[in-house]
């Protein structure tokens, strides 16, 4: 079964997003920051979709994306940013790094569930 990786330094957000996805039958793994997310990407090849925050300690979300695409040479995993950031410059950087989509917090699961299913399949 394909897996979704949720990366956020806030346990409130991790629990909310991961809990919602699990409740809807999806297989979810979590990471506490970009560094942890990168490590999980290395150790879990079944991950098809990453939902990540941008502003995190140790390694921010966009740097993690750049490393997933660059260092891990993983060009197939779908990556969605779930963040408070909405500046066009930040989104442009995400797009250039290989981000598939952008969600401005707060998280509204019902609005994105079906798209997540497709991206994770």
């Amino acid at each position: 079964m394909s897996k979704i990786l949720v990366v956020d330094d806030s346990s409130t957000v991790r629990d909310e997003v991961a809990g919602f996805l699990r409740k809807n039958g999806l297989d979810v793994e979590t990471a506490v920051d970009g560094k942890d997310g990168l490590a999980k990407m290395k150790s879990s090849p079944g991950i098809k979709l990453v939902i990540s925050d941008v502003n995190m300690p140790n390694m921010d979300g966009l740097t993690m994306v750049e490393k997933i695409r660059g260092e891990l040479v993983n060009t197939t995993v779908n990556i969605i940013m779930l963040t408070t950031e909405s500046s066009p410059a930040m989104k442009e950087r995400g797009k250039a790094a290989g981000v598939k989509g952008w969600i401005v917090k707060p998280f509204k699961g019902d609005a994105v569930l079906e798209t997540f299913r497709k991206l994770a399949s």
Binding site: K91, G94, V99, K100, G101, W102, V104, K105, K108, V112
Partner: peptide, 10 residues
């Protein structure tokens, strides 16, 4: 264009 909480696909 995109409300908070909605997905903006690139």
């Amino acid at each position: 264009v995109v409300e908070a909480g909605e997905l903006d696909l690139f």
